[in-house]
Nucleic acid binder design. Structure first.
Lengths: 130, 130
DNA sequence: CCGCATCCTCCATGATACTG
DNA sequence: CAGTATCATGGAGGATGCGG
C-alpha cells in the first residue's frame, strides 16, 4: 500500500469514515467498556466495579450507544432482583484489534510526547501572571 | 498475545494511556491534518485548501497542539509575505499506521453499524411528538 | 499570507436524587 | 440491582475581526 493510498483511507470522503468511528470511540468510556467486556460477558454492576471512576449514568449511556451500534448485546433476565448481562457482538470483537494497535502506539510514544511537551512549555512559558 | 493481555494494553493503568492518545487524536481535525501532511510537507494555506471545512482557527490550534506533542515540525521563513511550512516528524509518521487500521475498521464496518442503528431506532422510535 | 483574540453555542461528562 | 431524571459545568468548535 503506497503512502498516498494509506492517507486516502483516512482522508477519503473528506474524512467522514474516520470521523464516524472516532465519534463513536473517542469518548471517555467506550474503549474501556469494550476492552473489559472482551474478557468475558458481564453484568452492569460488575462492569462498574471493573471500570474505576465511571458513573452509573455514563456507563448506562455508553452501553446504550454500543448496543445501538450493534457492538454490544444486552440480555435482561426476568428475575427479581433484575439481572442484565452485556456481551460483545462479533462486530464488537473486531474493534479490539485496531484499538490495541492504538494503545500500543500510545504506550510506546507517550514518553516522547511528554518530553516534547515539557520542552515546548519550557520555551514558551504560559501566562506568568494572572 | 492472549485475550487478557490485549485488553490489558487498553485497560492498563485504568485506561490512562489509551485515554491520553484519544485526547490527542480524537478531535475533529488532528488525524486529517496528519494524513494530509503524510503526503508531503505543506504550507498553512495549502493545508487549509486540502482539508475541506476546517477554519483558520481550528487548523491553527490543531497544528500547534501537534507541534507541542512533537508530531509536527513548523518552519517559518523570514520572508515577506510570510511562508510557513509544516512537516510530520519521525514520531508523527509512526501514527499513520494505527490510524490507518482504525480507518480500515471504519470503512469495513460502517455498513453494519448503520444498519444496526436504523434497526434500533425503528424498534424504539424516539419522541413521536414534541 | 499567517494566525491570534474575542465572543458565543453546544455537547460530553458528572453529581445527585429517585424508581421498578 | 439496574437503571432514569434533573441540573450544572467545562471544554471543543465556529464566526468574525484585527495585526505583523
Amino acid at each position: 500500500m503506497s503512502r498516498y493510498e494509506r492517507t486516502c483511507l483516512i482522508r477519503g470522503d473528506g474524512g467522514r469514515a474516520i470521523r464516524g468511528i472516532l465519534d463513536r470511540i473517542a469518548n471517555k468510556w467506550t474503549l474501556l467498556v469494550v476492552a473489559t467486556l472482551h474478557e468475558q460477558r458481564m453484568r452492569f454492576g460488575e462492569l462498574q466495579q471493573r471500570i474505576p471512576g465511571v458513573s452509573q449514568r455514563m456507563l448506562s449511556l455508553t452501553l446504550r450507544h454500543l448496543e445501538r451500534d450493534g457492538l454490544v448485546s444486552r440480555t435482561a433476565y426476568p428475575e427479581v432482583p433484575p439481572r442484565v448481562e452485556y456481551e460483545l457482538t462479533d462486530v464488537g470483537r473486531t474493534l479490539i484489534d485496531p484499538a490495541v494497535r492504538l494503545a500500543e502506539w500510545a504506550v510506546e510514544h507517550n514518553p516522547d510526547i511528554d518530553r516534547s511537551r515539557r520542552s515546548y512549555d519550557e520555551h514558551r512559558p504560559p501566562e506568568p501572571d494572572r
